[in-house]
Structure formats: structure tokens, C-alpha cells
Design a protein around this nucleic acid. Structure first.
Length: 985
DNA sequence: CAGTGAGCGAGCTTCCGCTTGACTT
């Protein structure tokens, strides 16, 4: 009997399909993509590591050829599939019928290298009929569709891996940019900007309680003396004033109260009464985005929680696949839904015709059905109560109701609109209006009412029943209440509404909606506040950078345009390579990401990027910046941190001034019981510290430990810190002190010193311990961790030791070192592992400044030469000065020296790679000048005057309003900053 | 610009989409 291997994407699907196919078929799953571009250096195969494009994982110099690797997690699984393939007589690739699915099929083909016949089959619903029919109608792999997927993949990689480093350089390390996340972040930022610009406005109107022959109903004043009363929409959100040209009447509180008084008990007449019938159609069955939205509105679940519950339901066979963009129901589902409607609600509630739904989104790929109860007869939620967990049951209930409702009859009702005329006691004409809504036949609403995340709209929508009213009828305005209103800023995005907005713009896919929200939170671009997503100041800085310098990349239409191109590629009308050349290199009018990055790396002023425009602070002299330690404000030389929980739109001028006047780092914690002096916590140049006394200079100061937090510091702790430095005791007539220094905690004895391993030791270290430390040699003797952790011996080479270092565990044989990567560390590390790691990645330590390169360097195996020598464009190599004497020479010669090794790379790699570095040597003004952006205005003025014009600090300082001592300090700091910036710090 | 004792293996971060467990909090 011939054996056929069928491969689908999901294991749960594999189980179901195997049942339908019966004997002779083995159904396995790929578990998603089986290979991808390498994620990081660790995944790049050794033979490609030296390629200039290795970092990107695709050869941008040769047609953007991708480098695919099977990740470590997938290796075993792929090996298993390969084995199963070799045992089968036929292979059927049954991955999803969409761009990614086609690509998975192609990757399987590439990776499994089957020697048996291969067919491709597709289906859109998992029903017995659909599967059996699909297997009768196989086709070939659509290579154009695969090309489109590869283009998409390449573009995303290029965007992400080229633009992210710009952010590392200009904003903060570890940030990220991407086609999807950057637009999502921008949406949040733009909305917050609107809220920051928003000026609230107040207005008043009157609520009337009317009586029509004993029947009560509410009405609202809408016109006064022929003029319509102002509503929220009449106000300009930017000024809080009525929009220019508005002919509306505006009441303030006293006017409204007086008017209410004057109208109480007045006689009104019905001037018009209209009644209009309406019908409402049910909502389409769930797709991923609507499921997440309703999960949020009705169940209060985050997107992740909804998807977790859905995954469980799917795996248990309760619902169909949960990552879909198609609202269509299979024939069996339609029948099931309709028969259930009939059985549970009766014929009257059944839609006369089967309702067919199709996707509204033009980027939908519709590889699956809608999300619905599984099977050809739906199990009712009640019948499942006992077998499902709480979250799962509630979600199933939602899915069931929505699916059933989608085949039910329209809801029918009437909308009523009534106008009432009258006049005030002093004869001014007024008009009231009342509206009502009555449902005559609920139809599908019996089963399902869509939730709303706009409470105001929900309020308006509630059913209000008016008594029967006819034109000319007399009505009494029994009670009149003045009521005040305020315009509200646009609401922040929630997880659900962000997903909705992204989907509407065709950005992201069902499988990624939930993780997009995770990503922007992980990168520190947004934080949840209740259900709202609040963008951080970092998000503002990043978004502004991208909007100003990479505007087309964060355009809301970017993805839509990309999709059009991909459609053309999938349809064979265009080709992948020219498209990518345009995008990356700028061919044929393409955007040219690479040259854009190159020019922006130079052009973008990091300091300007870090400064965030806050309209409410315009003209105040207060600037908001994101710095290394978080967001802060500056006004001249004064600084104040912005509290973490302060949302950007809450930073009003008043709040900013309050924070500036009482900087968070300047808190009086209390009094020192001994001296009676105040204990003050401050944020200083070297980080947070406490001081005793408010004199200049204070009587004592002490830095906080890294574990301390300025905001939660107690008086008790501050006093403890202020006991430092502590006299530990005396050794041979020399005092031993425990101090907290710039490199951390240490002991001092005369001119000798030793580091301590933890800050808390400052309080606990004893004299004998101190003595033991001083007996150990200086830098090797770091507390208990001194010496190798482990040592490996070999018959044929020198021993390798495992040590704990500043950057974590590393291996060394005395000549070369290699830092261990994640997962390599630990007790499992064998001698063989250690040897191969060191041989593969071992690097010689850097040379001391000023020393000529040792001969050993030239003999070092080529492998040790990690980076290709001529990579000057990355701005990282070639920075080390080629001078022998420790001084850098900065003339045009230097750039020649930079380029030279590129040509000589083949012959003298190691020589080119390792010029004697002189990291501490001062750089020349010409090299420093481009980095002036990192300095404050005062610093810049100082440095420019001294370095460029050759003036002395003493003569420049008074002009800048600085005293000479301060100015000298500032000049020193500024110079350090500049050098650091120029070296790429 | 609160003030402090030295000088030490760097190398990685990052994208979007397709899928599940196997891990630990």
C-alpha cells in the first residue's frame, strides 16, 4: 500500500485532516515556517560571517539573495520531516493557500529534498468534502507567489535591520523600527499629540422633563431665539473656542441657570413629530481582528488573552482556526448555524436567505474560514460549561453567538424625532428636541449585540421610548435643569482600537496583531494605563525622527503600496529584484533606503532628536528631552526629571513649572536627628545622591546605591548612606576606609585600594576581610569570584579556563578570549565545547595604547580577523588612530589610511585590522566638530570659542554669564562628551 | 555643574510572519 505524507502548517489541523483522509496517509505539520533569515550573529553560518552583508542575512550585492537558515529550535523537527519524507512514496504540501503558506511549501521542498513525487494542495475549510476534493485537484507551487513572499521578507528585514541602528545611534540602544511597529507607534504618538494640543471648552444647555398628558419624557434645549445651541462639535479642538463663523448660541452657567428658571413650568407645543422605521443587519462572523476587539469590549481581555483562549479552543476542536481574515462560512457551517437558529429561536428569527460574507479588507488573503464553532453541528455554550475553562467558555460563547446571529433576521425598529416650541417668560422663543428609538423586532439582537468602546455612543444608542406625540399637541416643561458639558480630547487607542486601525490600513496580519502590541510595549514605546495605550517620550523622539528623516517609511500608506507591488510580483507582472533594488538602492525612482541611511547617519542631530516638541510649553523656555536616564525637562541649566507615570498629555505648563521648581531629585527627606540638618535627595551629574545640610558645599554627600530608587528613598536609608565613608579599622597603623567611588564600592588603605563586590559590603566588611583583600594582588583579587571558575586541560594545547568577567562568563587560554553566548554558559560546557568556541571566536585582547602591534598579531589565524577591513561605511572600523606615539593625526591622510586596508585586505588582514589603538588620545577639532549636537548651547558656545577661535575659558566665561570655575568644569565635561560622541559612544 | 581609587576579554541590540510547546515567573 503506497504511503503518502501530507504536510500542513499546524499540528491541530494535522490531527483533524488525518481523520478525514484515512489509511495510507500520514499527516504532519511544519509548525509554521521552517527556516528564515538569520536572526542574529549567532545564527549566521561561519562561511558567511565575513561577508559585508552578513549582518542583514541577504546578499544585497547580488540580487538580494536570501541566506536561509533552519533555526536551532526547528532543526530536530525538520530532520524528522526529512526522515518521514524518505519513507513515503509521495509528498503532498498542504500548507495554507496564501503568500506565507506558499512560501512554507517551497521552503519544505528546498529543505526536505524529496526523491518522491511532490504535489501541492490547498483548501479553505477543514471539512471532509473540502479535503477530499482538494486532494483530487493538486497543483504546482506558485513560484511567483513565493517571490512575492521573499520580497516582503527582504523588505521587512532591510527596513528593520537598517533603520533600527539609526535609532541606536541617535536615540537609545536596543530600540527598533519596522514597517508595522513604527506605524503603530506613530498612530499612538499622533493621537497623543492631538490630546496635547487639545484645549477643552465648556458649554451649558438645559435638560427638560416634559409631561404630555401624564406621560413623562426627556427633551433637550436645542435653539434659543432662532439660533442653534452650541454642541461639542462647534468648538475648535485647538483653541477651545467656537469655530470661526459659527452662528450658534453659547450659554454660560449663570445664563443657563437663569434660563432654566425662566422656563420651568412653561407650556410647549409639539411642532413636529417624525417616526422613521429602520432595519439593522447582523454583524459578520468573527475574523481575528473583530474577535480581539469584541474580546476586549465584552470580556475585557487583552489581545494576547483572547488569542490564548482561542488557541485552546482550536486545539480542542471547539472552534475553527483563529488566525484568519476571512468572514466566510463554509456550507456546513451555514447549515449548522441556520438549523440552530430555527431550533432555538424559531423560523421568524432566521434570515430568509443564507447570508454570505466576504472580506472588506483588500489585503485579505482568505486562506481560512471565519472563526466559528467547529463541526457540522454546533455545540451550544450551555452544553460545554463543564468541559471548558472560564476564559475559553466565555470566548466560545461569544463565537457561538456571533456565528449564529450572522444567519439571523434583521432587527427592525423605529426612530422618533420630536421638536417642541415654546418661549421664556420674557418672550424669547426656544426649541427643544427629543429623540427616541424603539425596537419592534429584535431579530439577531436576540443573540448578539456588538460591544462598544465608545461609551458616549453607547449612551446615545440606548433605547428611549417616547410617548405617542402629534403635531400641535400641548406639552408642559415640568422641570428644567441646567446642565454643563465639556469637550473631550480624542480618546487614546486601546489594544482593540489599535488593531482595528492597523487592520483598516492593511498593516499587519492576523497572526501578528497581538504581538505588535507586545513589541511596542517591550521596546518602551508604549505602556498600558488601564486599557489605554499611552506612548512614551521615547516613542515621541523615535517617531519624530522617522517622520522627519524617513517620512515615506512611516507613511500610513506604505504597507498598502507595498502590497500592490507584491500583488504585481505574485501576478508575474513585476519582479522581485528590481523592486528591492528600487527600495534599497534607489534604482528607477525607488526610495533608496541605503543612501538615505548613509546621509541621515551623518545629518541627524541626536540632540535635536532627543528634544520633544510640546506645544503647551512653547515660549516657556522649558524643553522636554529624552536622556540616558529617561525623560527630563530643562530650562537653561536647570533640570527636572519627568515622573514615569506622567502621560505626555498631562504635562501642562503648570505641571512643568511645578516640577521645575521642585525637581523630583530635590526632595527633603527629613532631618538628621543628630545634627538637626535637613537630609535632601537630589539627582546630580553623576546620578542620584543625598546630601546633609542645604549649604554650599553641603556638610556631607553620598551617592545612592544602584538598588536604591530616588523616588522611594527613606530618611532612614539616606542616613545610612550618609554614614559613608566608614572607617573599617586600622592595619599596621594605616586607616582602612570603605568608600563608594565612581567605579563602585572599594576599600582604601593609604595609597592602596581594592574593589568590593557589592555596595552593601560597605556597611558589613570587617577588618579581617579587608586585610585578606589587601593581601591579594590588585586586580585579580576581586572578592570571592577571583580565579578561574573552571579549567579545561588538553594533551595537545594549553589549558583553557572559564572566568567570570565584566561582560559575563568567558573563556581564555591566555592568548585569546571568547565571551560565552546565551545557552553556552553553565555546567554542561565540556572541554571540547570550550576548545571549539575559543577556536571559532577567540579574539586577542586589545593592545595597550601607544604600543606598536605585536608580531603575534600578524601571525594570528585569519579567523581571528572578525570584520572585513574595509567597512568604513559602518562608521565603526577605521576609527582607531594609526599613530604609534599615542597621538592621533587628523589630516586628510587619515581618510586615506582608512580606505587603504580595504584593498590590502586579502593580504594583510590582521595588520589592517589591528593598528595600535589610541583610545584616550584627543581627537582633532575637525573630527569633533560634527558632533557638537550632543552639547548644550552653553557648552557649545564654550567649546567653539576655545577650540575654534583659540580663546581662553577665562575670557569667554563672563560673556556666557558663567563664573570661571564653573566654566572650566563645563569645558572639561563638554570636551569629554565630544570625544565620546566622535568615537561613536 | 556634590565628590571619589584603578584600568579591564566586547559584542550585541533590531524586522515581519508562520507556528507550538518548553521553559520559568
Amino acid at each position: 500500500m503506497p504511503k503518502t505524507l501530507v504536510i500542513v502548517e499546524s499540528p491541530a489541523k494535522a490531527r483533524t485532516i488525518e481523520k478525514y483522509l484515512g489509511k495510507g496517509y500520514t499527516v504532519e505539520s511544519s509548525i509554521g515556517h521552517i527556516r528564515d533569515l538569520p536572526r542574529s550573529a549567532a545564527e549566521i553560518p561561519e562561511r558567511y560571517k565575513n561577508e559585508s552583508w552578513a549582518r542583514l542575512g541577504l546578499n544585497v550585492e547580488e540580487d538580494f539573495r536570501p541566506l536561509y537558515v533552519v533555526s536551532a529550535e526547528k532543526r530536530q523537527h525538520v530532520a524528522r520531516l526529512r526522515k518521514l519524507t524518505s519513507e513515503a512514496d509521495e509528498l503532498i504540501l498542504a500548507t495554507d493557500d496564501d503568500r506565507e503558506g506558499e512560501s512554507i511549501a517551497w521552503h519544505l521542498l528546498q529543505e526536505l529534498k524529496p526523491k518522491v513525487p511532490v504535489r501541492r494542495m490547498v483548501f479553505h475549510e477543514i471539512t471532509k468534502e473540502a479535503i477530499q476534493s482538494a486532494i483530487q485537484h493538486p497543483r504546482d507551487i506558485d513560484t511567483n507567489l513565493v517571490e512575492a513572499q521573499e520580497a516582503r521578507r527582504a523588505l521587512d528585514r532591510l527596513y528593520g535591520y537598517e533603520v533600527s541602528p539609526v535609532l541606536w545611534r541617535k536615540v537609545a540602544p536596543k530600540l527598533s523600527a519596522g514597517r508595522v511597529q513604527s506605524v503603530a507607534t506613530r498612530l499612538l504618538v499622533e493621537r497623543e499629540r492631538e490630546r496635547m494640543r487639545f484645549v477643552s471648552a465648556g458649554w451649558w444647555d438645559i435638560e427638560a422633563q416634559c409631561d404630555a398628558a401624564g406621560a413623562q419624557f426627556p427633551a433637550r434645549l436645542t435653539e434659543l431665539e432662532g439660533r442653534r445651541l452650541a454642541l461639542g462639535r462647534d468648538f475648535d479642538p485647538l483653541t477651545g473656542r467656537l469655530k470661526p463663523g459659527s452662528e450658534v448660541a453659547l450659554l454660560d452657567e449663570p445664563q443657563a441657570r437663569a434660563l432654566a428658571e425662566a422656563l420651568t413650568g412653561s407650556a410647549l407645543t409639539v411642532t413636529s413629530a417624525e417616526e422613521k422605521p429602520y432595519t439593522q443587519r447582523p454583524y459578520p462572523p468573527f475574523i481575528t481582528s473583530t474577535l480581539q476587539q469584541e474580546g476586549s469590549r465584552k470580556l475585557g481581555f487583552g489581545a494576547q488573552r483572547t488569542m490564548r483562549a482561542a488557541q485552546k479552543l482550536y486545539e480542542g476542536g471547539y472552534i475553527t482556526y483563529m488566525r484568519t481574515d476571512s468572514p466566510s462560512l463554509s456550507a456546513e457551517a451555514m447549515t449548522a448555524a441556520r438549523s440552530q437558529v430555527k431550533a432555538m429561536y424559531g423560523d421568524a428569527y432566521l434570515s430568509p436567505q443564507p447570508r454570505v460574507y466576504s472580506s472588506k479588507s483588500k489585503n485579505a488573503q482568505e486562506a481560512h474560514e471565519a472563526i466559528r464553532p467547529a463541526g457540522n453541528s454546533f455545540r451550544t455554550p450551555d452544553s460545554l460549561r463543564a468541559e471548558l475553562g472560564t476564559d475559553e467558555w466565555r470566548l466560545y460563547d461569544l463565537v457561538w453567538k456571533r456565528t449564529v446571529a450572522s444567519q439571523m433576521a434583521d432587527a427592525r425598529g423605529r426612530r422618533m424625532q420630536v421638536r417642541l416650541g415654546g418661549q421664556t417668560r420674557d418672550g424669547r422663543p426656544v426649541q427643544f428636541s427629543a429623540s427616541g428609538r424603539a425596537i419592534d423586532f429584535p431579530g439577531f439582537l436576540r443573540a448578539y449585540v456588538e460591544g462598544s468602546d465608545d461609551p458616549a455612543a453607547a449612551l446615545e444608542d440606548r433605547e428611549v421610548i417616547l410617548p405617542p406625540l402629534t403635531q400641535g399637541q400641548a406639552v408642559t416643561g415640568q422641570r428644567m435643569d441646567a446642565s454643563g458639558h465639556e469637550t473631550q480630547p480624542p480618546a487614546r487607542y486601546t489594544e482593540a482600537s489599535l488593531v482595528q486601525a492597523l487592520e483598516a490600513a492593511g498593516i499587519g496580519r492576523p497572526s501578528t496583531y497581538a504581538s505588535i502590541i507586545g513589541t511596542i510595549q517591550d521596546r518602551g514605546y508604549a505602556a498600558k494605563k488601564g486599557s489605554a495605550l499611552v506612548p512614551t517620550w521615547t516613542a515621541f523622539a523615535t517617531s519624530a525622527l522617522l517622520e522627519h528623516h524617513f517620512s515615506s517609511l512611516v507613511d500610513y500608506d506604505f504597507t498598502a503600496r507595498m502590497e500592490e507591488e507584491l500583488d504585481d510580483i505574485a501576478g508575474g507582472r513585476k519582479q522581485r529584484t528590481p523592486y528591492l533594488r528600487g527600495f534599497y538602492l534607489g534604482d528607477q525612482g525607488g526610495m533608496g533606503l541605503k543612501p538615505l541611511i548613509a546621509s541621515n547617519m551623518e545629518a541627524i542631530d541626536a540632540r535635536a532628536v532627543a528634544t520633544i516638541e510640546v506645544p503647551r510649553l512653547a515660549g516657556s523656555g522649558i524643553e522636554v528631552r529624552v536622556g540616558k536616564y529617561g525623560p527630563y525637562m530643562s530650562q537653561g541649566e536647570a533640570r527636572a526629571n519627568i515622573p514615569e507615570d506622567l502621560a505626555p498629555d498631562e504635562l501642562t505648563l503648570e505641571r512643568a513649572q511645578e516640577l521645575m521648581s521642585r525637581p523630583s531629585g530635590d526632595q527633603v527627606l527629613g532631618q538628621d536627628p543628630e545634627t538637626g540638618l535637613p537630609v535632601i535627595a537630589k539627582a546630580g551629574r553623576f546620578g542620584p545622591y543625598v546630601q546633609l545640610g542645604d549649604t554650599t558645599p553641603p556638610s556631607r554627600t553620598a551617592s545612592l546605591f544602584p538598588t536604591d530608587d530616588l523616588n522611594t528613598l527613606t530618611l532612614e536609608r539616606a542616613l545610612q548612606l550618609l554614614t559613608l565613608p566608614r572607617l573599617v579599622g586600622t592595619l599596621e597603623g594605616e586607616e582602612v576606609w570603605a568608600l563608594n567611588g565612581k567605579f563602585g564600592p572599594y576599600l582604601k588603605r593609604g595609597t592602596d585600594s581594592r574593589s568590593l563586590t557589592s555596595h552593601e559590603q560597605l556597611f558589613t566588611v570587617t577588618l579581617p576581610e579587608a586585610e585578606a583583600l589587601f593581601q591579594q594582588p590588585r586586580f585579580r583579587g576581586r572578592g570571592a569570584t577571583a580565579g578561574p571558575l573552571k579549567s579545561f586541560e588538553y594533551p595537545d594545547r594549553t589549558a583553557i579556563s572559564l572566568r567570570s568577567g565584566r561582560f559575563g562568563p568567558y573563556l581564555t587560554d591566555g592568548e585569546r578570549n571568547a565571551t560565552l553566548r546565551k545557552g553556552e554558559d553553565g555546567p554542561d560546557l565540556s572541554a571540547d565545547d570550550a576548545r571549539s568556541i575559543l577556536e571559532e571566536r577567540g579574539k586577542e585582547p586589545k593592545k595597550k595604547p601607544g604600543k606598536p602591534a605585536r608580531k603575534a598579531a600578524a601571525k594570528a589565524p585569519a579567523k581571528a580577523a572578525k570584520k572585513p577591513a574595509g567597512k568604513a561605511s559602518a562608521g565603526r572600523t577605521g576609527r582607531s588612530a594609526p599613530a604609534e606615539g599615542g597621538m592621533a593625526i587628523h589630516t586628510p591622510l587619515k581618510s586615506a589610511a582608512r580606505k587603504a586596508p580595504a584593498k590590502a585586505a586579502g593580504k594583510s588582514k590582521s595588520a589592517a585590522k589591528k593598528p595600535a589603538t589610541a583610545p584616550k588620545a584627543a581627537l582633532a577639532w575637525a573630527d569633533l566638530k560634527p558632533h557638537l549636537g550632543v552639547l548644550s548651547e552653553q557648552e557649545r558656545a564654550l567649546v567653539t570659542a576655545t577650540r575654534e577661535q583659540g580663546r581662553k575659558v577665562e575670557e569667554v566665561a563672563p560673556g556666557l554669564g558663567l563664573d570661571i570655575k564653573k566654566a572650566k568644569g563645563m569645558a572639561l565635561q563638554a570636551s569629554k562628551k565630544l570625544n565620546q560622541a566622535a568615537r561613536g559612544g
